[in-house]
């Protein structure tokens, strides 16, 4: 996929090990499982729940220069859509190469229409998207 994916919870690395070995669904997992038992990193990203000591479902994309570009946080009871994560990631890659463009909401993959904001486009976004 071209990115380092790190899963993080407040469990210790020992629990990560035990869970990954125990749970058949995780047999093929290859991402590093990060451990944040003090909640320090989780607080930094605003996903630490002080009442439960658990992390909310937060996803963050950081570029190679260390800049935070995307942030999505869901409450406990809602899962994340991996297609949307991939869409954001691919859009970031495109925008890193084409710094004067923007990826509209319906942009899905390389080749889809992008916008280059300009004075001409003001009030004409509908036409530009056509």
């Amino acid at each position: 996929m071209g990115a380092e994916v790190i899963t993080i919870s407040t469990d210790t690395k020992f629990v990560h090990l035990a869970w990954q070995r125990d749970e058949k669904l995780l047999e093929k997992v290859k991402y590093p499982m990060g451990s944040d038992p003090t909640g320090k990193i989780s607080r930094m990203f605003g996903v630490y729940d002080e009442n439960t000591g658990l992390d909310l479902r937060g996803t963050f994309i950081i570029n190679p220069e260390g800049k935070l570009l995307n942030s999505e946080v869901n409450y406990y009871n809602m899962g994340r859509n991996i297609d949307e994560l991939m869409r954001k990631f691919k859009a970031n890659l495109h925008l890193a190469e084409h710094t004067n463009e923007g990826c509209p909401a319906k942009w899905k993959e390389e080749g889809d229409k992008t916008l280059a904001p300009s004075a001409k486009m003001v009030g004409k976004v509908y036409e530009a998207l056509k």
């Binding site: 071209g2 990115a3 380092e4 994916v5 790190i6 899963t7 993080i8 919870s9 407040t10 469990d11 690395k13 629990v15 990560h16 090990l17 035990a18 869970w19 990954q20 995780l26 997992v29 290859k30 991402y31 590093p32 499982m33 990060g34 989780s42 990203f45 996903v47 439960t52 658990l54 992390d55 909310l56 479902r57 937060g58 996803t59 963050f60 994309i61 950081i62 570029n63 190679p64 220069e65 260390g66 406990y76 994560l85 990631f89 970031n92 890659l93």
Partner: peptide, 29 residues
């Protein structure tokens, strides 16, 4: 899991390696 071993990861290493990073927080194992 890929190494079956413990490790350490830091933002400075990922930056040095010019890597995009996705952090995926979840409630509990």
């Amino acid at each position: 899991p890929s190494k079956g071993d413990f490790g350490e990861i830091s933002i400075s290493t990922l930056k040095a390696d010019k890597k995009w990073t996705i952090l995926f927080f979840y409630p509990a194992d």
